[in-house]
Design a binder for these strands. Structure first.
Length: 315
DNA sequence: AAAGGCACCAACCGCACGTGC
DNA sequence: TGCACGTGCGGTTGGTGCCTT
């Protein structure tokens, strides 16, 4: 026996929602709250599928939705987040309060793609359209984990002593003490135009990361991929790797363990929302978030766990 | 004024994942 | 351990309105 359908299709309305249906749904949720979408339609007197109700509420009726056009700042934030996360619309939406994943997805497909094409950037790879051949000559630089690595969502520029005039440089953050621990966090920098690669004499690591100006942002096309650390070296990672944002060195924000940051609680599974900087369940209601947040408080006391926790932008 | 093309976006669909039994 | 269920996600579709011819 296969899975039962989410609703009896022959007895449900489809297509655009009427004002009356909206009112019924809103009134019901005001009284009983969200959840149990399967039984909601019947309880609310709606001839709709539960999924349809959920979607209508999340994408259109929710009171905290921001209506209206996207601002230039939101545009740029979406582009940055997409370059980091790909088509993870829900994660991107979590960074833009009042916007829904569906809205952002539509906006991406209708506006931003075109905008990027007009800039000569491939919206999928975030590389210049004629740079694809250049990546074939990319070089790879392995950087010790004592290098400064920022919250990837704030990261816009990496300067690297070893970055030559190649069109592309891969940087793999690894652990000095154990060469087996590689490919933990990897970046690929693609150099575009004549932007100068700065050398940071204060950095013993050879790599610094700093918050860049919009000018830099346009000059460097950053592609970042991040893999979750394996169970094998999660403890090593917590104790030996440290990352720091240059521009925030004077002001010490709360610190967390990187593995916790990205994975929440191991036994609970990964909560990437938490890793993206949400300290509460404002963007995610999973239990991993709460657990990770609770764990962070105790973990933060350990100065070896020098992984910073940054507040999300615009939140 | 009518027809066709296009852009936009709400809504749908199938799938994946987590949870409880 | 396996199954059913509930939920969420990302890709796709279809309706609507605007613009051009």
């Amino acid at each position: 026996m296969g899975r039962s359908p989410c609703c009896e299709k022959e007895h449900t309305n489809k297509g655009a929602w009427t004002k009356e249906e909206d009112e019924r749904l809103v009134n019901y949720i005001k009284l009983h709250g969200e959840g149990c979408w399967r039984s909601l339609p019947k309880a609310a007197g709606l001839l709709r599928c539960g999924k349809s109700c959920r979607l209508r509420w999340i994408n259109y009726l929710r009171p905290d939705l921001k209506r209206g056009n996207f601002t230039e700042e939101e545009d740029e934030l979406i582009i940055s987040l997409h370059s980091l996360l790909g088509n993870k619309w829900s994660l991107i939406a979590a960074r833009l309060p009042g916007r829904t994943d569906n809205e952002i997805k539509n906006y991406w497909n209708t506006h931003i793609k075109r905008k990027l094409y007009s800039r000569g950037i491939d919206p999928q790879t975030h590389r210049t359209i004629n740079a694809s051949s250049a990546t074939a000559t990319a070089t790879t630089t392995t950087v010790p984990s004592s290098a400064n690595v920022a919250d990837p969502l704030k990261l816009t520029t990496i300067t690297n002593k070893n970055m030559k005039n190649d069109s592309s440089t891969n940087i793999i953050i690894s652990n000095n003490n154990d060469n087996n621990i590689t490919n933990n966090i990897s970046f690929q920098l693609v150099k575009i135009g004549n932007d100068t690669v700065h050398e940071d004499s204060n950095s013993s690591s050879g790599v610094t990361i700093e918050e860049a100006s919009p000018h830099h942002h346009q000059q460097l096309n950053l592609e970042l991929s991040i893999g979750l650390p394996s169970h094998q070296y999660q403890n090593q990672l917590a104790s030996s790797s440290s990352v720091k944002l240059k521009h925030e060195q004077q002001e010490e924000p709360p610190r967390i363990n990187l593995y916790q940051q990205w994975c929440g609680n191991v036994s609970q599974g990964a909560c990437v929302c938490y890793g993206l900087g949400f300290q509460t369940n404002q963007a995610c209601c999973c239990r991993a978030m709460a657990t990770a947040a609770a764990t962070t408080v105790t973990k933060a006391a350990n100065e070896d766990d020098i992984f910073r926790f940054y507040r999300p932008m615009n939140v």
